Simulated assay, not measured.
Amino acid sequence: MFCGQGVGEPRPSQQLAVIEQALDQGVNYFDLIVPPDRLQEASHLHSSALSALHEQRENIILSAQVGFHPLGRIAGFGSRKSITSALDGILRTTGLEYLDVLYLNRYDRSTPMRESVKAMTTAVDRGKTLYLGLSDYAPASALRMAKALSETGNPAIACQAPLSLLNPWAQDALMSIMDDQGISLIAETSLPKHLLSYVESTCQDGSVCEAVQLSSRRREAMKELESIAVRRGQSLVGLALSWVLRDWRVASSVVPISSLALLQESLGSMSHLKFTADELSAIDYCREQIDTLFDA
């Protein structure tokens, strides 16, 4: 299981505690999130929070993304200059000599694909990453990029994509393509509590009547999902992760962990991967009642 570690929340000391506990319980794959607009702050944060990872460097796998970022440029993020600069910034900020997996986030239509491919493979050739991956690619562009990387002798080994209980975006087309190409699917799993918090905040903010009604429908469906989780001896968070990881095509899941309690809930999902037909049917019904415009 991935343990996503980013810059900002939680505090460095708390983040270090989460990392140490995760390592003690066998988590060995960490996805590092280093926002390009906060590299200065990240340098201080990672110097303390990632100390445990540095000590275990030979026994763990570390990955990070370059490419599109909401606060970055909207065009040219797949260029050689952008990819190279972003990767150098990550390595400099984290103090790492190399990454195990470097993901290219999203297809940049403003940059020739061959340029992006060249920049990524150059990172491998220069020892800055061992393997390559894709992130948030639509099925058609994912297939083209996967084939282009494979032709260079540096194939993508994994593809990150949104897949959660309430946002099954990666199901069907993308999962089939990745399976055909021999590429592992890594689910970017947001947790149901995020949606529940959103629903409650919109109601408190005095949303328009239609939105309030929609939120009420979401809330009822979320409560039913929570009831299903309780009957299975799980929390809502645990149920959501078990539902994602039950699919044999999902190699792992990226889970943003902000506390020790959330870490334990997440790890507990690994022992509840079997669902009955009735449970899956009930979960599907609840999902149909929830508007998936907003990710879970």
Rank of each mutant, 00 (worst) to 15 (best):
G4K: 14
V7R: 01
S13I: 10
V18M: 05
I19M: 05
A22N: 08
F30H: 03
D31G: 02
V34P: 00
V34Y: 00
Q40A: 15
A42V: 04
S43R: 14
S48M: 09
A52H: 08
E55A: 14
L62K: 03
A64K: 00
H69Q: 12
P70I: 03
P70D: 04
G72N: 05
I74M: 14
I74T: 11
G76N: 06
F77K: 00
S79E: 06
S82G: 00
S82F: 13
S85M: 06
G95W: 15
Y98E: 13
Y98T: 03
L102T: 00
Y103Q: 03
D108I: 01
S110K: 03
S116H: 05
G127H: 11
G127T: 07
G127C: 05
L130C: 06
Y131E: 04
Y131D: 02
P139K: 02
A140T: 14
A140K: 12
M145K: 01
M145G: 00
K147E: 11
K147S: 12
T152M: 13
T152W: 13
G153L: 03
P162Q: 04
P162F: 04
L163P: 02
S164A: 14
L165F: 06
Q171C: 09
Q171H: 08
D179G: 14
Q181E: 15
I183F: 06
L185P: 06
K193R: 12
Y198Q: 11
V199N: 06
E200L: 14
S201E: 15
D205A: 15
V208W: 14
C209G: 04
E210V: 12
S215D: 11
K223Y: 12
V230G: 02
R232T: 07
R232Y: 15
Q234M: 15
S235P: 11
L236S: 12
V237I: 11
G238S: 08
A240L: 02
R246T: 01
W248I: 07
S253F: 02
L262R: 11
L263W: 04
L263S: 07
S266N: 11
L267T: 10
M270A: 15
L273R: 12
F275E: 04
A282G: 08
C286L: 13
R287F: 04
R287I: 13
E288R: 14
F294C: 09
F294D: 05
D295F: 07
A296H: 06
